[in-house]
Amino acid sequence: MALKHARLLEVIDLHASDEERGTSMSSSLLKTDRLQLMQVVLPAGAGLPEHHVAGEITIQCLVGEAKVVTPRQTCQLAVGQLVALPGGEPHAVQAIRDSTLLVTVLRESS
Protein backbone atom coordinates (compact mmCIF):
# COMPACT_ATOMS: atom_id res chain seq x y z
CA MET A 1 0.00 0.00 0.00
CA ALA A 2 1.37 3.45 -0.94
CA LEU A 3 2.07 5.96 1.79
CA LYS A 4 -0.41 8.80 2.10
CA HIS A 5 1.57 12.01 1.62
CA ALA A 6 0.20 15.48 2.13
CA ARG A 7 0.04 17.78 -0.85
CA LEU A 8 1.49 21.28 -1.05
CA LEU A 9 -0.76 23.78 0.78
CA GLU A 10 -2.35 20.94 2.80
CA VAL A 11 -2.09 21.39 6.58
CA ILE A 12 -0.16 18.60 8.32
CA ASP A 13 -1.17 17.96 11.94
CA LEU A 14 1.95 16.77 13.74
CA HIS A 15 -0.20 15.80 16.74
CA ALA A 16 -2.52 13.56 14.71
CA SER A 17 -2.65 9.90 15.67
CA ASP A 18 -1.31 7.23 13.35
CA GLU A 19 -4.86 6.14 12.57
CA GLU A 20 -5.90 9.69 11.67
CA ARG A 21 -2.84 10.13 9.43
CA GLY A 22 -2.99 6.60 8.00
CA THR A 23 0.70 5.97 8.68
CA SER A 24 3.01 4.09 10.99
CA MET A 25 4.76 5.79 13.91
CA SER A 26 7.67 6.99 11.77
CA SER A 27 6.31 8.30 8.52
CA SER A 28 6.97 10.38 5.45
CA LEU A 29 4.56 13.31 5.73
CA LEU A 30 5.24 15.14 2.46
CA LYS A 31 7.26 14.29 -0.61
CA THR A 32 7.72 16.47 -3.68
CA ASP A 33 10.39 16.55 -6.36
CA ARG A 34 12.56 18.82 -4.18
CA LEU A 35 11.41 18.38 -0.56
CA GLN A 36 10.60 15.59 1.88
CA LEU A 37 9.29 15.90 5.45
CA MET A 38 9.46 12.90 7.76
CA GLN A 39 8.30 12.36 11.32
CA VAL A 40 10.63 9.94 13.08
CA VAL A 41 9.52 8.42 16.38
CA LEU A 42 12.16 6.66 18.48
CA PRO A 43 11.80 5.13 21.95
CA ALA A 44 14.58 5.87 24.44
CA GLY A 45 17.73 3.97 23.50
CA ALA A 46 16.64 3.29 19.93
CA GLY A 47 18.33 4.87 16.97
CA LEU A 48 18.98 5.05 13.27
CA PRO A 49 22.33 3.63 12.11
CA GLU A 50 24.81 5.81 10.27
CA HIS A 51 23.56 6.79 6.83
CA HIS A 52 23.57 9.82 4.53
CA VAL A 53 21.28 11.54 2.07
CA ALA A 54 22.30 13.53 -0.99
CA GLY A 55 20.56 16.79 -0.05
CA GLU A 56 20.87 19.11 2.93
CA ILE A 57 18.69 18.17 5.91
CA THR A 58 17.42 19.55 9.18
CA ILE A 59 16.57 17.42 12.20
CA GLN A 60 14.24 19.12 14.70
CA CYS A 61 13.35 17.68 18.10
CA LEU A 62 9.60 17.97 18.73
CA VAL A 63 9.40 15.65 21.76
CA GLY A 64 12.04 14.16 24.05
CA GLU A 65 15.79 14.35 23.59
CA ALA A 66 18.07 12.87 20.93
CA LYS A 67 21.60 13.10 19.69
CA VAL A 68 22.84 13.36 16.12
CA VAL A 69 26.32 11.93 15.59
CA THR A 70 28.46 12.91 12.60
CA PRO A 71 32.18 12.33 11.95
CA ARG A 72 32.71 16.00 12.84
CA GLN A 73 30.68 16.31 16.04
CA THR A 74 27.82 15.11 18.22
CA CYS A 75 24.81 17.40 18.63
CA GLN A 76 22.38 16.85 21.49
CA LEU A 77 18.88 18.09 20.68
CA ALA A 78 16.18 19.01 23.21
CA VAL A 79 12.60 20.05 22.45
CA GLY A 80 12.54 23.05 20.15
CA GLN A 81 16.11 22.63 18.89
CA LEU A 82 17.29 21.64 15.44
CA VAL A 83 20.48 21.03 13.55
CA ALA A 84 21.18 21.39 9.83
CA LEU A 85 23.49 18.98 8.04
CA PRO A 86 25.16 19.41 4.65
CA GLY A 87 24.22 17.03 1.86
CA GLY A 88 26.11 13.75 1.96
CA GLU A 89 27.10 14.13 5.64
CA PRO A 90 27.15 10.69 7.32
CA HIS A 91 25.07 10.75 10.49
CA ALA A 92 23.41 8.50 13.04
CA VAL A 93 20.56 9.38 15.40
CA GLN A 94 20.08 8.06 18.94
CA ALA A 95 17.09 8.76 21.21
CA ILE A 96 18.15 9.66 24.73
CA ARG A 97 14.50 9.83 25.83
CA ASP A 98 11.37 8.85 23.88
CA SER A 99 11.61 11.24 20.94
CA THR A 100 9.73 12.57 17.97
CA LEU A 101 11.84 14.27 15.32
CA LEU A 102 10.84 16.27 12.26
CA VAL A 103 13.32 15.67 9.45
CA THR A 104 13.37 17.94 6.40
CA VAL A 105 15.31 16.78 3.35
CA LEU A 106 16.08 18.98 0.35
CA ARG A 107 16.06 16.53 -2.52
CA GLU A 108 18.25 16.98 -5.55
CA SER A 109 16.17 17.97 -8.55
CA SER A 110 16.04 15.38 -11.30
Results as ranks from 00 to 15, higher is better:
Val40Pro: 03
Lys67Phe: 02
Pro43Ser: 12
Ile57Tyr: 02
Gly88Leu: 13
Leu106Asn: 13
Leu9His: 14
Val68Lys: 05
Leu102Ser: 12
Ile12Asp: 00
Ser24Leu: 12
Gly87Met: 11
Glu19Gln: 04
Leu14Cys: 12
Thr74Val: 15
Thr100His: 04
Asp33Ile: 09
Val63Trp: 01
Gly22Tyr: 00
Ala66Phe: 04
Ala92Tyr: 05
Leu101Cys: 02
Ala46His: 10
Leu62Cys: 03
Arg21Glu: 01
Met25Arg: 14
Arg34Val: 13
Val11Met: 05
Thr32Val: 11
Ala92Gln: 07
Ser17Leu: 01
Ile12Trp: 01
Cys61His: 05
Val103Asn: 07
Ala16Met: 03
Pro43Arg: 13
Leu106Val: 15
Pro49Gln: 12
Pro49Lys: 15
Ala44Leu: 08
Val63Asp: 01
Leu82Asp: 09
Pro90Ser: 07
Ala44Ser: 13
Pro86Gly: 11
Leu85Ile: 09
Ser110Val: 13
His5Gln: 07
Pro90Asn: 04
Asp13Phe: 03
Val79Arg: 12
Gly47Ala: 07
Val53Ile: 02
Leu102Ile: 14
Gln94Glu: 15
Lys4Ala: 10
Ile12Gln: 00
Gln76Leu: 14
Ala2Gln: 09
Ala16Glu: 04
Val41Gly: 02
Leu8Ser: 13
Leu8Glu: 14
Arg107Asn: 13
Ile96Val: 15
Gln73Arg: 15
Glu108Lys: 15
Asp98Asn: 08
Asp18Val: 05
Ile59Val: 15
Leu3Arg: 07
Gly80His: 10
His5Cys: 06
Val79Ala: 09
Gly45Trp: 08
Met1Cys: 04
Lys31Asp: 10
Gln60Glu: 14
Leu29Ala: 08
Pro86Trp: 08
Leu8Gly: 10
Gln73Asn: 12
Ala78Leu: 12
Gly64Asn: 00
Val69Gly: 00
Pro49Asp: 15
Val40Glu: 07
Ser17Trp: 00
Ser99Cys: 11
Val63Arg: 01
His15Ser: 10
Val69Glu: 11
Ser24Glu: 13
Ile59Tyr: 09
Asp33Pro: 09
Ser28Ile: 14
Ile12Ser: 04
Ser27Tyr: 03
Leu29Asn: 03
Ala6Glu: 07
Val40Ile: 15
Asp33Trp: 08
Thr58Pro: 01
His91Pro: 09
Ser27Gln: 06
Leu82Asn: 09
Gln81Gly: 07
Val69His: 01
Leu101Glu: 01
Ser24Ala: 11
Thr32Pro: 07
Glu19Asn: 02
Val40His: 10
Asp13Tyr: 04
Glu108Pro: 04
Val103Arg: 01
Ser109Met: 13
Ser28Met: 12
Leu62Gly: 01
Ala78Gln: 14
Leu3Gln: 13
Arg72Gly: 03
Met38Ser: 15
Val103Phe: 06
Val105Gly: 03
Arg97Ile: 05
Val105Cys: 05
Ala6Lys: 10
Ser110Cys: 10
Val103Gln: 11
Leu48Phe: 10
Val83Gln: 10
Ser17Glu: 00
Glu19Ile: 08
Gly64Glu: 01
Ser109Glu: 14
Pro90Cys: 10
Arg107Met: 14
Leu77Gly: 02
Arg97Val: 08
Ile12His: 02
Thr104Met: 15
Thr70Met: 01
Glu10Gln: 15
Val68Trp: 00
Glu56Tyr: 05
Gln94Phe: 14
Gly87Glu: 11
Glu19His: 03
Leu85Trp: 02
Pro49Val: 11
